Measured scan of single mutants.
Amino acid sequence: EVPFKVVAQFPYKSDYEDDLNFEKDQEIIVTSVEDAEWYFGEYQDSNGDVIEGIFPKSFVAVQG
């Protein structure tokens, strides 16, 4: 069931425009499960802007 919160276990950096880049310990709200390997989610950056994109499930852990 979406949405749910995950926390980055590792930093994720990608050159693909659709990917969500983040640092370790970033909290991310997952709004869609793309497939067995990928989530789609969002978070607010330090400027208060909402950043969204896809990212690999293996880089995050589900909270709770």
Rank of each mutant, 00 (worst) to 15 (best):
E1S: 12
V2F: 09
V2Y: 06
V2M: 08
V2E: 02
V2R: 06
P3A: 04
P3S: 05
P3V: 05
P3R: 07
F4E: 00
K5I: 11
V7C: 09
V7D: 01
V7F: 08
Q9I: 15
Q9T: 10
F10Y: 12
F10S: 07
P11I: 06
P11A: 14
P11G: 09
S14H: 02
S14F: 02
S14L: 03
D15V: 10
Y16R: 15
E17V: 13
E17W: 09
D18S: 14
D18H: 14
D19W: 07
L20H: 01
L20E: 02
N21D: 05
F22R: 01
F22K: 00
F22T: 01
E23G: 07
K24N: 04
D25C: 15
D25G: 15
Q26S: 02
Q26E: 04
Q26V: 05
E27N: 05
E27Q: 08
I28V: 04
I28A: 01
I28T: 02
I28C: 05
I29F: 08
I29S: 07
I29G: 01
V30R: 01
V30P: 01
V30D: 00
T31W: 10
S32E: 07
S32V: 07
V33W: 07
V33I: 14
V33E: 06
D35G: 13
D35W: 08
A36H: 11
A36R: 09
A36K: 09
A36M: 08
E37P: 06
E37V: 10
E37A: 09
E37M: 11
E37T: 09
W38Y: 12
W38M: 09
W38A: 03
Y39P: 00
Y39V: 03
Y39A: 01
F40L: 07
G41A: 03
G41T: 03
E42A: 10
Y43H: 00
Y43A: 02
Y43D: 00
Q44D: 03
D45T: 12
D45Q: 08
S46M: 11
S46K: 13
N47C: 09
N47Y: 09
G48D: 04
D49K: 14
D49T: 12
V50Q: 07
V50C: 14
V50K: 14
I51A: 08
E52C: 15
E52I: 10
G53L: 04
I54L: 15
I54C: 15
F55A: 01
F55Y: 01
F55C: 04
P56D: 04
P56C: 07
P56M: 04
P56T: 04
K57A: 12
K57V: 08
K57Y: 06
S58N: 09
S58W: 10
F59R: 07
F59T: 08
V60W: 04
V60G: 02
V60T: 05
V60L: 02
V60F: 04
A61Q: 12
A61E: 12
V62T: 10
V62E: 09
V62H: 11
V62S: 08
Q63P: 13
Q63Y: 14
G64T: 12
G64N: 11
